[in-house]
Design a protein around this nucleic acid. Structure first.
Lengths: 308, 308
DNA sequence: TAAAAATACTCCATAGGTATTTTAT
DNA sequence: ATAAAATACCTATGGAGTATTTTTA
């Protein structure tokens, strides 16, 4: 089947006159006659009843005309759709995020983007940081809000707003009302922590902080989410080190106290595959970058075209 | 836009390999590369991200693929639809009928046809005989059940089952209980009739019957339907000549009494344009003909290819 | 008889083939 | 080093043009 035959037939069915139809199609009459004959032969159906004085649609021709108009319409529409998606005006983005991101920059970035690019359908999926990096490598995710210190070389990333670790204690704790706490004064406490199997990124972040301070405290494994950690502390299960932004979660019975000395920044980045960047993702990154002016001294990968 | 480009792209998007896709398409690899390039150039959009080791759909390509599959599907479906309509397996027929036909063959024929050709949508429209012949000439109707003695030369027709005129009297009338009535004994009665303007065919039929009997009775004009005529007779407005089949209408207070002498057949034909006969109409005529074996001595036009 | 569709033919644009080169893993 | 896509070039099918014939209202 040739598409131009359908176009010719559609015009012919409107004009019901080979000469005028040929003129509208910018061809001459004989090839138009031949084209219609070819179409009818291919279908095995007479579409136009014609003689030298009259041209009229058959019942089959009328039915076919309806379908043909839909087809021609769709062909144009398909091209426009492709162009719109290529331009980032339409489409869909799959974005991953960890539970703790809901109290950081993520919601604001998502809302900004939804407003600026209403044609893009955002699919948000809560996943752990390691699940996200996996999914990003396998192209099952376009971008992810992750808590990892270093992203794989195949990913680019953008650091999120800085967020320092603070100490989280239950309200009744002797240290809970101090203005700030030295990390070493917590060496006898039991810490609520992440199991390495279930949330390796979060686990590693906190352990790195401990080892930098040179201490090896007692730990109690629990949960895969920062929010759960705070809730467990509030319930008296121990103390913990958590991102300062967890204050926004507002969990009663937990106090957040800054640590003494230099700040202990948490890691948090928006990451995406370096090699797979559709226009919609570019737009998303642009919105994120706009909301996150590059902070000097933050230990995250440079965003654009950098190599490790 | 060329349809084969869409086909090539659809297969290519499935295989994600130019060599295998070309094989499936029964062409060689180079023209397939050229074809995709031509499609991308026309759209102004990259559909496949490719190098010598990997071929992958872009976001725009994924969106376009969805549309392309619908288009290719529809193109095939359109051809099948055209063939089905041409074969009389699908489509629509506009059939006219006069009010009196509901007590004659029409309902049975329509039901037979609906059973035999369930794919054809029957559009039944009650119209006077003259409206129907007009509509048939202007191709606004495919066929019509009409009450006319002679159809125009541009129409073919099939006589319906024979139906004689009988006398219709109110129950209390002196002649109402006779076994049969001589037409001349009614010369002093007032007749319920059709106005010529509103129902010329019915009017002419009855007037012809009168003039054949050589009488010119008093008339009272009313209505455009046989059923109304019977109802008016029952209400004591006069007497009338009506088709015997009106007995089936079962209107209380009206008696139908045969006429003496030779029978006075009513006219009733299924008519259609000689020049415009889609397959669905052929099927309809076939069903009607099957139910109406040609009766000798009936004064209606021969059905097939006859000239007046 | 005149307007319009169908035929007969000619031409060239392009879809598709073969041979080869380039590229990325 | 090798598999696969891109490029170069050639061939031939068929879409479109011109000239003419046929048809029917």
């Amino acid at each position: 089947m040739k598409l131009h035959l359908l176009r010719y037939f559609a015009v012919l069915a409107e004009e019901l006159h080979f000469g005028r139809a040929a003129e509208r199609l910018s061809i001459t009459q004989p090839p138009l006659s031949a084209a219609l004959k070819a179409l009818e032969d291919e279908l095995g159906v007479t579409l136009l009843e014609r003689n030298s004085k009259h041209v009229a649609l058959t019942a089959a021709g009328t039915a076919y005309l309806g379908e043909v108009r839909l087809i021609l319409e769709r062909v144009n529409q398909a091209a426009q759709t492709a162009r719109a998606v290529a331009a980032g005006l339409r489409g869909r983005l799959d974005i991953g995020f960890t539970g703790s991101m809901v109290v950081r920059d993520m919601p604001a970035i998502v809302q900004d983007f939804s407003r600026e690019a209403p044609g893009i359908e955002l699919q948000l999926r809560e996943m752990s940081s390691s699940e996200q990096t996996d999914a990003l490598m396998h192209r099952q995710l376009h971008a992810g809000f992750v808590n990892v210190a270093t992203v794989p070389a195949a990913l680019d990333s953008l650091p999120l707003a800085c967020d320092s670790f603070v100490c989280c204690l239950p309200s009744g704790h002797p240290l809970a009302d101090l203005p700030e706490i030295d990390l070493r004064s917590l060496s006898d406490e039991t810490f609520v922590m992440f199991s390495r199997e279930v949330a390796p990124a979060n686990h590693d972040n906190v352990v790195a902080l401990f080892s930098r301070a040179g201490i090896h405290p007692k730990t109690r494994h629990a949960s895969r989410q920062w929010l759960t950690v705070v809730a467990l502390v509030a319930a008296g299960m121990g103390v913990a080190l958590v991102p300062a932004s967890m204050a926004r979660a507002g969990i009663a019975g937990a106090r957040l106290v800054p640590l003494t000395g230099e700040p202990h920044p948490t890691v948090g980045v928006l990451a995406w595959p370096r090699a797979h960047r559709p226009a919609a993702l570019e737009a998303f990154i642009a919105v994120a970058r706009q909301r996150l002016p590059p902070l000097p001294g933050v230990s995250a990968r440079a965003p654009e075209g950098s190599r490790p």
